[in-house]
Design a protein around this nucleic acid. Structure first.
Lengths: 154, 154
DNA sequence: CTCCAGTGTTTGACATGTCAATCATATGGT
DNA sequence: ACCATATGATTGACATGTCAAACACTGGAG
């Protein structure tokens, strides 16, 4: 009868714990490898990827933040750190003097290019090759279902 | 021929991105709720859970760190913060004067008890109820497969 | 007994993340 | 033109995470 229970069952909770802990471990392992192989953090990589794909390799902060799903203040702090390392540069925006434009610097382009192959190899090794094709499809569906729940109404 | 390709295909990469970004969002949402509902972080909750389940509600730091999968230095920093909030206490260890024993304090017990139901409700809402029973089982299997890969040889 | 390599834990320096407050400029209503 | 409010972005204070070094004791070889 407890179709309408409010709390997870023991098995559901076990699945939850295994799922959330493992995905955290997965993230940590990949982040650690990326840092070891290319000296970039996950955040660095996300920023550089978005900039690399952007027209003219430049983006407004708000747009960049939306693309990678970050709050603006988080991005701002991170850009400060990346700027110190000459990976990106802040330009003034021509059309809105409040605004800025984040520009990919040569060092950022180089670091991103050097990082890409090792990073994708690592993804292949610890994600793609760890799962069957069917499981990969299932993972994508699960993610879609979760995202659907997370981003509605709220 | 590219059965032995070293990099993910476009589809595999899409699945990867959706998976990793969504699990991060999931974690962030649950952490935010837990903090809002009970004033505890994910880390606080993990520590309090382990201590609550421990015999005599006390544990050696190294044991505690292993149970929740943290590095010892991370745990030490976190315990310092929790101690300031009177959630836990550090006792000297009777059998090894180098060592310590982390003890659950009344405030920690209360906070954990107050946090549990809202947290599990949230897990039910954003994880269990977002997926079909079949998907939950698949999620557990995927996590097991990933963990298997992550924790072997390396 | 003495020394020293090993173990348990903490510390310091720094990278990263969140939240609320601030700053500067843009913009629409009067 | 003027101002109230909205918008783009940054800042400050603080929580959290990693890494390497330091610290404090243990336990066994000589």
């Amino acid at each position: 009868m407890p179709r309408s229970r409010k709390l997870p069952t023991r098995d559901e909770l076990r699945a939850w714990r295994e799922f959330i802990e493992t995905t955290e471990l997965l993230r940590a392992v990949l982040a650690s490898r990326l840092h070891h192989d290319a000296g970039l953090s996950f955040g660095d990589y996300a920023v550089l990827l978005a900039l690399s794909e952007a027209e003219d390799t430049r983006l407004r902060p708000t747009e960049l933040a939306e693309q990678i799903g970050w709050e603006r203040s988080r991005l701002s702090h991170h850009l400060g750190r990346m700027q110190r390392r000459h990976l990106v540069r802040r330009d003034e925006c021509a059309t809105d003097s409040r605004g800025a434009e984040i520009v990919l610097e040569p060092a950022g382009r180089d670091a991103f290019q050097a990082a890409t192959v090792p990073h994708l190899s690592a993804v292949k090794e610890v994600f793609v090759d760890a799962l069957t094709p069917h499981q990969i499809a299932a993972a994508a569906e699960i993610a879609a279902a979760l995202r659907n729940r997370l981003t509605r109404t709220d």
